[in-house]
Amino acid sequence: KYLVLALYDYQEKSPREVTMKKGDILTLLNSTNKDWWKVEVNGRQGFVPAAYVKYL
């Protein structure tokens, strides 16, 4: 498993997404889509914009 760092705040806009705050450390679950990565944060799984996170 990889960890990624939230570069920006992101507010979920659909039930498939998750909210994150700048500085959050997220567990990367799937990065096959170049635009949306599946992550786990605070016990929830969902998608965030790939451009908003970077590998640690």
Results as ranks from 00 to 15, higher is better:
N30G: 08
L3M: 11
Y2E: 13
L5E: 15
V4I: 09
R16G: 15
K34S: 13
S14Y: 07
Y8H: 12
R16N: 15
K13I: 08
D35K: 14
L7H: 03
L7V: 09
Y8L: 12
A51V: 11
Y52S: 12
R44Y: 07
K1T: 14
V41W: 06
P15K: 11
I25V: 12
N42I: 04
S31Y: 09
V41T: 12
R16D: 14
M20H: 01
Q11D: 15
Q45H: 08
D24F: 04
T32A: 13
R44F: 07
V39G: 00
P15S: 12
K34Q: 11
M20E: 00
D24W: 09
E17N: 05
R44D: 04
G43P: 01
V39Y: 00
E17V: 05
L29Y: 04
V4H: 04
Y8G: 07
F47P: 00
Q45E: 12
N33V: 05
A6S: 06
S31T: 13
Q45A: 13
P15F: 09
K22L: 05
V18E: 01
I25G: 01
Y8N: 10
L26C: 11
V48Q: 00
A50S: 14
L3R: 09
S31P: 08
Y2N: 13
Q45Y: 08
K21A: 10
L7A: 06
Y55I: 15
Y2C: 15
G43S: 07
K1C: 13
N30I: 08
Y52T: 08
M20Q: 02
D35A: 11
T27D: 06
S14V: 05
L7Y: 05
Y55R: 13
L56R: 04
S31Q: 10
Q45F: 08
K34R: 11
T19C: 06
V18Y: 03
K13V: 10
W37L: 08
V48C: 03
N42T: 06
R16F: 14
F47D: 04
R16M: 13
D9A: 06
P15W: 09
L29Q: 04
E12R: 12
I25P: 02
Y8M: 14
Y55F: 15
L26T: 01
Y10W: 11
R44M: 09
T27I: 15
T32C: 14
W36P: 00
K54Q: 15
L5M: 13
K1Q: 13
G23C: 07
Y2H: 15
K13S: 10
K54P: 01
D35I: 12
V39C: 05
E17M: 05
V4Y: 11
G43E: 07
K38I: 14
Y2P: 14
L5S: 06
L56G: 05
Y2W: 14
Y55H: 13
K34F: 08
N33P: 05
K1D: 09
N30L: 09
R44Q: 09
T27W: 11
K54N: 09
A51Y: 10
L29K: 05
Q11R: 09
L3I: 10
Q11I: 14
K38M: 15
N30C: 11
Y8S: 11
D24R: 02
W36K: 02
T27M: 13
G43F: 05
Y10F: 08
A6N: 01
V48R: 00
L28W: 02
Q11V: 15
V41I: 15
W37T: 04
D9H: 05
S14H: 11
D9K: 02
E17R: 04
